[in-house]
Amino acid sequence: MFQDFKSDPFLFMIAVGVIVFVIAQSLFFLLRAMKRGKEIGLSRETMKNTISSSALFSIAPAISIAVTVLVLSVALGYVLPWIRLSVIGAIQYEVPAAEAAIDAAGLSGGIGRDISDPKTFTAIAWVMSLGCILPLILIPIILKKVQSKVSGTVNKNAKWADLMSAAAFIGLISAFLGRGIAGIGEVQITESGEKINAVIGDGAGVLSITAIVSSIVFMLLLTLLNKKLQWKWLEAFAMPFSMLLSIGVIVLLNTVAPDLAAIEWRY
């Protein structure tokens, strides 16, 4: 009866319901923000450009998130990872949550094994869901207080607030760039005890540095082009174009020189 329970049409219907909910919420806030933008004098063009550039910006990351569904699909099928990665979830949280539930059920092999027992499957679904809900409880309670404290600081000293806001974001950028420069990827220990790179592209190496350097170069070039040629439209799209061009360079490098691309100095 439960041979293909992970792809049961009812489960697909649950996923569709969740997707409709997420889109409805986003549309609700989008329309209200656009109405407010009009009231406070933001131009139609600025808001339109924000929509187009944000959509373009999100394409490559969205595809990379979609691909991570495959990581979980061996154990859980497609529907549960799809739901989890569409709502709150991110792969770095979902894998440990699934592994913890599989482990607690007394099974070995982690997410690399097919989960054939429905009770283990639902246990994993519960753990993944319970593991991610804290922000939804915290935000309604503390967000307004946090925001009013921030507004107070901004009103007192705008320059200071702007600097701190930039510094916070630079800290975030540093974390990700630092990982691309010196982060360790997944390691596999061979029978002879030798450490080898388990996954190509997850540790600091030629690919991560190529991604960082090429996206910086493309961004600077497009910004310069925008300034020189006065292409107003390019301003909003410089970022997503830089990302997409950089991904093109990585795919090219990986295809033309796979041995060079596979070099990682941290694993």
Binding site: I63, S64, L177, I200, G201, T210, I212, S215, S246, I250
Partner: peptide, 14 residues
Amino acid sequence: APAFKQVTYTIFGA
């Protein structure tokens, strides 16, 4: 597959 692992770096590089 290795290219998808670099998307985050392209975002933060840009």
